[in-house]
Amino acid sequence: MSNIFYVGIDLGTSRTSVATSTGKRITTRTCVGYPKDIISKKRFGKDYLLGDYALDNRLGLNIVWPLAEGVIRESEKSLEATGLILRHIIAEAIPDKKESDKIYAGIGVPAQASLNNKRAIIDVTTDYIDKILIVSEPFAVAYSIDRFDETLIVDIGGGTTDLCRMHGSIPEKEDQITLKIAGNFLDDVITKAILEKFPDVQLTPRIVRRIKEKYGYVSEVSEPVVVTLTQNGIPAEYDITDILRESCLKLTNPICKEIQKLVGTFDPDFQEKIRNNIIIAGGGSRLKGIDRAIEKSLRDYGGGNAATVQDAEYCGSIGALKMCMEMPEEYWEKI
């Protein structure tokens, strides 16, 4: 007798997370490393490496981030890499799957992903996913926390920030906004700001990401942020407190403007309710003080209330899982 396994996937620019009906949760970096030459291929003994393992060995690999811009890049290598990542993480999450068993998956994508991009996901997973439901990432977040009435979801990922107004039914196009200002943008801003003040320090994307994730803030006060960086291999301490806040504000200020837009264009009878029900999700929700910064931006509108999700890592994948377990048959494979 065959079994049906349900899988919720948050296919993110930087990280991909999975939650399954068996209770398993797994996350991985959304990247694939291909050996640079015959020497690296001999060293690894594989045609590709995935996730953190690939990054740990990146000097001998060509790293592909297939969703670097928030959606699958339209190249054969990016499509292949996306398929490899999804195949691997599903196999890891459901190791006991038999050949006769079925996989039903809900996959979260950016709010305004194109029809072609959704079709590409279906095409690269057709060999190992039996039924697929493509869902908006902010809608998946709302589904995970059962917030469907007059709620504004702000999902700050790596490549995109997705905003979505919920009002008791499936959101319309005008309820959703996708910004290309997100975690990767902030990494670039922080890198440029540090090098402008300390031009000789040595930075890599992983170093900058660790700084952002550990110290990033937009609150008006903070403990001093002093980090150890190297200059020509020699470590020293650098105070980046002001640099970090000014950089993070370049992320949050545009997001706040789009929140104002979605509040200001909503039905006037429900504007007060939606500005007092703002949920912040994604990796960007970990920035210290981001909830208060959003509330401050709504003072001219009568104030607001913003809160961050408790589980930023798996909130989207849990919502996608719940949705695919509860969704009526006629919605499957609907794009």
Rank of each mutant, 00 (worst) to 15 (best):
F5I: 05
G8N: 01
L11A: 06
T28R: 09
R29T: 13
Y34S: 12
I39S: 10
F44A: 06
Y48A: 05
L49E: 08
L50S: 10
D52G: 09
G60Q: 08
N62T: 15
V64C: 10
P66W: 11
L67G: 04
V71E: 04
V71H: 00
E74F: 03
E74P: 00
E76M: 08
T82Q: 08
G83E: 01
R87A: 05
I90D: 01
K98T: 08
K102S: 13
A113Y: 02
N116K: 12
R119A: 11
D123G: 13
V124E: 06
Y128R: 01
K131E: 12
I134C: 11
A140R: 00
Y143K: 14
F148I: 07
D149Q: 13
E150S: 13
I156T: 12
G157S: 07
G157M: 05
T160E: 06
T160R: 06
L163A: 04
L163D: 06
I170Q: 06
P171N: 13
K173I: 14
N184K: 08
A193V: 00
P199S: 03
T204P: 06
R209E: 14
Y215A: 02
S219K: 08
S219N: 11
E220P: 01
V225H: 02
T228P: 03
T228Q: 10
T228M: 11
I234A: 12
I240V: 13
I240R: 09
T252H: 05
P254L: 00
C256N: 14
C256V: 03
F266A: 14
P268R: 02
E272P: 00
R275L: 02
G284L: 15
R286T: 00
L287R: 00
D291F: 01
K296A: 10
T308W: 06
Q310A: 15
D311H: 07
E313W: 07
Y314K: 02
L321V: 07
L321N: 05
M323N: 10
E326P: 03
P328Q: 08
Y331E: 14
Y331P: 10
I335A: 01
